[in-house]
């Protein structure tokens, strides 16, 4: 199958999440046509994978999938306005068409966390690729020990999926800690960086799998902090970001040291990347 095949999808709903972030719900316009991945199978995805989102006349960008892997027929993408394509996506309305190629990239090693504590760390929009992990683990909650979500963002008004987080907290056995960089005096939650939450959550360092997604600096500091607590580098996973044009290893743009982020990543174990992730301009 042609990895460059772009399939038209229809915007079903646009949900404004924060001042600069929206979540798009999209689906195939014609149900009679089975959605296909580039590999030729019916469209399905695993947590941590991404699609290339295309706006006619503007261009194409990689965006992680933020929906439920058990219901891939409804695609969700949470997009932050940072460039031409993401701005165009944020201005979409119900019924508008966008193009999809994907899914691409390797997934979070969710199954590996079975029988272990699972710690999810997200910074800002980095919560989007973490959400499918939660959707996958909730129906099989008893296979995991403690599950913690540590989420840091800029300010209380920038918290993504706020009402959903509240639901998760009450419905599933999930410890959620949220912190913000800055807040007005009436904020009752935590203020501080996300790394300060690590010591507030209980987990067994020897038997904990950690998944982190956020700005690279936040991931680097989180990895250091987790190592301090005794978590093994091979049990820490990060989601990397680089420029992407083709998403299949042809264009060379996403190279990060010896890897192509599009096909060798975007998920890497900290053990793999620890000698590279702090290097300047790699």
């Amino acid at each position: 199958m042609d990895p460059f095949l772009t399939i038209p999808f229809v915007i079903q709903r646009v949900k404004k999440e924060t001042s600069d972030t929206v979540t798009l719900e999209i689906s195939r316009p014609d149900d009679r046509v089975k959605t296909h991945s580039p590999a030729g199978s019916a469209f399905s995805f695993l947590p941590g994978q991404f699609n290339m989102l295309y706006v006619l006349g503007i261009g194409e960008i990689p965006v992680s999938i933020s929906g439920d892997p058990n219901h891939p027929e409804k695609l969700f993408h949470t997009v932050r306005k940072v460039g031409a394509v993401s701005i165009a996506l944020s201005l979409m309305e119900k019924g508008d068409r966008i193009g999809i190629r994907g899914p691409f990239g390797n997934p979070w090693p969710v199954n590996k966390a079975q029988g272990m504590d699972l710690l999810l760390m997200a910074g800002g929009i980095g919560l989007a690729p973490i959400r499918p992990v939660l959707y996958q683990v909730f129906p099989e909650r008893d296979r995991y020990n403690r599950i913690g979500l540590l989420y840091g963002t800029r300010a209380p008004e920038d918290i993504l999926y706020e009402s959903e987080i509240k639901q998760w907290r009450s419905k599933f056995d999930l410890e959620v800690l949220v912190t913000v960089d800055r807040a007005a005096g009436d904020w009752k939650g935590n203020t501080g960086v996300v790394t300060t939450l690590i010591s507030k959550v209980s987990f067994d360092p020897d038997r904990t799998l950690v998944m982190i997604c956020g700005p690279e600096v936040m991931m680097r500091f989180s990895c250091l902090e987790l190592q301090k607590k005794g978590v093994k580098p091979e049990n820490i996973f990060v989601s990397m970001e680089r420029n992407m044009k083709c998403s299949v290893g042809f264009c060379g743009h996403c190279q990060f040291g010896p890897w192509f982020v599009c096909k060798d990543g975007p998920i890497f174990s900290y053990d793999q990347v620890k000698d590279w992730i702090g290097k300047r301009e790699i």
Binding site: D158, G192, V217
Partner: peptide, 20 residues
């Protein structure tokens, strides 16, 4: 932790609609 916050990591670099 304070130094990290000085970076204002989650601040949008001011993508301007009119620019595009």
């Amino acid at each position: 932790a304070t130094r990290l916050r000085l970076l204002d990591l989650f601040h949008s670099k001011g993508a301007k609609l009119d620019y595009w």
